[in-house]
């Protein structure tokens, strides 16, 4: 049972990735598509952080360290980097959608397309 409780973050990861992919696949609204990508990013980031967790782990700072057991610091560094990249991507995609809307008057993936075939 104590083991089972540590799987909850991974269930959350699966749920977030599932929701993210569902939005990306089924929603033709471009802004919602970006939201889907953000949710997907959140899922992957949560995955990275939660796999670095150790049971009863403390903060991985050596000054005033009171725990012998620490959580892994590397996944946290990875997550931080990934969050920064994610923000950049989100902002960039939203600004692109803005100009797409200006040109075509639609933010629907089907109505705003010009390239196919």
């Amino acid at each position: 049972m104590t083991q089972g409780i540590f799987n909850i973050p991974f269930l959350a990861v699966a749920a977030l990735i599932g929701i993210g992919l569902y939005i990306i696949v089924f929603d033709r609204n471009l802004i919602k598509l970006v939201i889907g990508i953000t949710v997907l990013q959140a899922g992957v980031n949560l995955f990275l952080v939660s796999l670095g967790y150790r049971q009863h782990g403390g903060v991985p700072i050596y000054t005033n360290a009171c725990h012998s057991n620490m959580v892994l610091p590397v996944p946290q560094a990875l997550t931080l980097t990934s969050i920064v990249i994610g923000v950049a991507i989100t902002a960039f995609m939203l600004s692109m959608i803005m100009i797409i809307y200006r040109h075509t008057g639609h933010i629907d993936a089907k109505k705003s397309r010009k390239l196919k075939g």
Binding site: I24, I37, I89
Partner: peptide
């Protein structure tokens, strides 16, 4: 051009 760039970004992000 916007549409092409957006598609590239979208598939790259995923």
């Amino acid at each position: 051009a916007l549409e092409g760039g957006f598609k590239y970004m979208c598939i790259s992000a995923v």
